[in-house]
Design a protein around this nucleic acid. Sequence first.
DNA 1: ATATTATACTTGTCTGTACAAGTTGTCAAT
DNA 2: ATTGACAACTTGTACAGACAAGTATAATAT
Lengths: 241, 241
Amino acid sequence: MAQSKVGVIAQDLVDKIKHQQYKPGDYLPSEHQLMDLYGASRETIRKALNSLTELGLIQKIRGKGSIVLNLDRYTFPISGITSFAELNNQLGLKAETKVLLLQKEDKLPAQFIKYFPEEENSIGFHLERLRLIDGQADVLDCDYLLSPPVNSLPQEAAETSIYDYLENKQKLDISYATKEISVCKIDKRIQDLLQLDNDLAVLVASRNYLANTTKFQLTLSYHRPDKFKFVDFARRKKIKF
Amino acid sequence: MAQSKVGVIAQDLVDKIKHQQYKPGDYLPSEHQLMDLYGASRETIRKALNSLTELGLIQKIRGKGSIVLNLDRYTFPISGITSFAELNNQLGLKAETKVLLLQKEDKLPAQFIKYFPEEENSIGFHLERLRLIDGQADVLDCDYLLSPPVNSLPQEAAETSIYDYLENKQKLDISYATKEISVCKIDKRIQDLLQLDNDLAVLVASRNYLANTTKFQLTLSYHRPDKFKFVDFARRKKIKF
DNA sequence: ATATTATACTTGTCTGTACAAGTTGTCAAT
DNA sequence: ATTGACAACTTGTACAGACAAGTATAATAT
């Protein structure tokens, strides 16, 4: 997955932290020691350490070292563009996906227009999936995959992981996303699907982009309010916008 | 604010993007041109560009250049540890803060214990503030500032900006935070403060830390559901946890 | 005992070089 | 006109060296 030397080192350090080889509160080996361990230059080591810092796994303290932070599985940030299938694997949940709809459209379906007016006339694949955890319907994912760049979308990919399909089969380079989390009123249909008493749901709306900056996916995720939990790690920004 | 050469360059680029000197869709000058412009080495330029990449301001494309992304003010990510006063300045809102409570406690008040059980016996300053925008009460911020490391907390700091006070007066080095966003039931008192019809609010619970990894602040922010909006920028992570 | 100094560690910052790899346009051969 | 090779750009990765600055320990001077 991570082919560069920096990536290999970073992944190895992450794995060792995960398996408690380096425990929360411990200091990692010093940068010079890591240079010997991995046979790399100091800049290379430092780039790997910086990526762990951004992930919230370590904190660097000048003059002392890099200390492993205390982030158990439940506080580990869910942000980043993580697909449901990946989340599922990482957290070891037994989840199920029901595909409610998969069809090609020649313009953006009505329910999306309010949130993504700029794509009103785009061709794409309309996909609706209900996510169940322990038999309970927790999330309704409504996707619109823009075509181009998405040429095809088999039913089987929709049932398992469209990200796996797009990245590995279609060789699309998924890169970044903008997300908005808010609370919205939902119609009777969604209310029934999620078996909700009232008409409020947490809505995560996201625009997803490839590395060449082309937009390829719009998503509206409706979450049961009582099950929704978004965990984030944030560093104090030194740059003022 | 940013004393390092990298920081100065990054801030300058951000300012130029902000003032449309570099517009969305444009390519920034190449790294070699930026070297000449700022009189810096390529690695220094690249570190500055990387920080813009993480902020979601640009996208680097190999062989082509760094393209400015289209992020208007409303989609600019609010994450990071940004204080209400800072947000206020950046967005140019006319907001008001009412201090409801400020007193020292010798153990964690009951309302916090459910979310921060590990700090049950900590001494600290209990602070409650109501945030109003256009006269409307939108957020109730409940803070617990741990003592140590926070020795004092004057009323005036609570009314304006405790982050300004802690960073500039007390010289605390605020570094990172973990946040959890969820939806919770609120009691009658909070319901009245926020003038809500029902008993649901969006709750952002966060643990805030200094650069030396000491926890200094616990926060429970209750948001009116109809006003809450959390905007985020996320990059696809290449590291699997 | 206390304070100071020296030192050996740590991370932070910046420089310069080298080569790999992706993109684009030019020019020549077909 | 199309193709293909090449050159000139771009960013990506890695290396080695130098000095600054913060931390901790031990030896020293008072």
